[in-house]
Simulated assay, not measured.
Amino acid sequence: MTPPPPKAVLFDWDNTLVDSWAVIHHAMTATFEALGQRPWTLEETKRNVRKSARDSFPELFGMRAEEATEVFYRTYEADHLQQLRALPGADAMLRRLATAEDLLLGVVSNKRGHLLRLEAAELGWERYFGPLVGAADAARDKPAREVIDFALAGSGIAPGPQVWFVGDTDIDVLCARNSGCTAILVRAEPPGEGEFGNLPLGGHVSDCKTFAQLTLSALENGKVEQQIRDFS
């Protein structure tokens, strides 16, 4: 089913709006090595990094999760702003969407909240967003519904199909499902066979430019044009 036009668009951050795999992989490598474990390859990092450190590190490092968290964030914070790169078309997309009337733009990320807001400020993007919500800002992190409720609090917009959650991985789709929102996949690769199981996906577009065009058209015409690929 084609999704309704959005009242709010909430974006994932890492690898939806910014290219951050290199710095994440470097910090994960340092963490595994510090704790005497085999580091992941870059492909393993891309495949496995989904949850916040608050949720994933106890699973990965057990009783040493606190130590691992300290190493990871110390390494990450050393150069994340220097390594920060917007994905192609992301800045232009946000500029265009920010001109739309009555459309709330926000971010819901599993990156720690203060780091997320530092990166948004470094790119000059904080002016585009209302909520900039990261890990540990809400009672629970993505994919829990609480993080969406936290992001929309005070906006007058309730979680539902007219809130689009835009991301690139299964945890983004799951977060949308858990909160009753519409999941939109924005990445070059279409969904793989069975990648999202029975999770509802509102659609897929290949890049930021296309997403901006479709969103603005939906707001103007009251419907989403058929260029969005429907997987529901």
Rank of each mutant, 00 (worst) to 15 (best):
A139N: 02
D172I: 14
C208K: 13
Q227F: 04
L185D: 07
P143S: 01
P159D: 12
T182Y: 11
D12F: 03
E77N: 12
A135V: 13
V108G: 08
L216Y: 02
F61M: 09
L42D: 12
S155T: 01
E43I: 08
A68M: 03
A27H: 00
A139V: 15
D79Y: 11
L214P: 09
T16Q: 06
P190M: 05
L60E: 06
E119K: 06
A144W: 07
I228L: 15
E193N: 10
V166P: 05
E33Y: 03
F211N: 08
D172T: 14
P58T: 02
S56G: 01
W40H: 11
Q82A: 15
A22D: 14
L115S: 13
D207I: 06
A153Q: 15
L199Y: 09
Q162I: 01
L185I: 15
T2M: 07
R47C: 00
A139W: 08
P4T: 01
H26C: 05
D149H: 13
L105I: 14
G130T: 01
V71I: 04
L10Q: 11
M28I: 15
I24L: 09
A53I: 14
A22Y: 00
K209D: 14
R145E: 13
Q162E: 15
R74C: 10
T2L: 06
D230E: 05
A98F: 03
G222R: 08
H80A: 08
K111W: 03
V163S: 12
G106R: 12
F165S: 04
L10Y: 03
E101G: 05
A78Q: 14
A135Y: 05
E119M: 12
P191G: 05
H26V: 12
A120I: 07
L60W: 15
P190F: 09
F61N: 07
T210C: 05
F11S: 10
L84F: 01
I148N: 06
W164E: 10
T31R: 06
W40D: 04
P143H: 01
A34V: 13
D102A: 13
D19L: 11
H114F: 14
D149Q: 12
E77M: 13
N178H: 13
S179G: 11
P191K: 06
V163H: 11
G180E: 08
L84N: 10
G180W: 10
R50I: 13
L201F: 07
D168G: 01
T215K: 02
L118V: 11
F165K: 10
R38H: 08
G62E: 00
A188I: 11
E101M: 02
L42C: 02
G203V: 03
A138I: 11
W21P: 05
R47I: 00
L17Q: 10
E195S: 02
F129V: 02
L17C: 09
V71T: 07
C208W: 08
V49L: 02
Q83G: 00
Q162L: 00
V23Y: 03
K46T: 06
Y73L: 12
A176N: 12
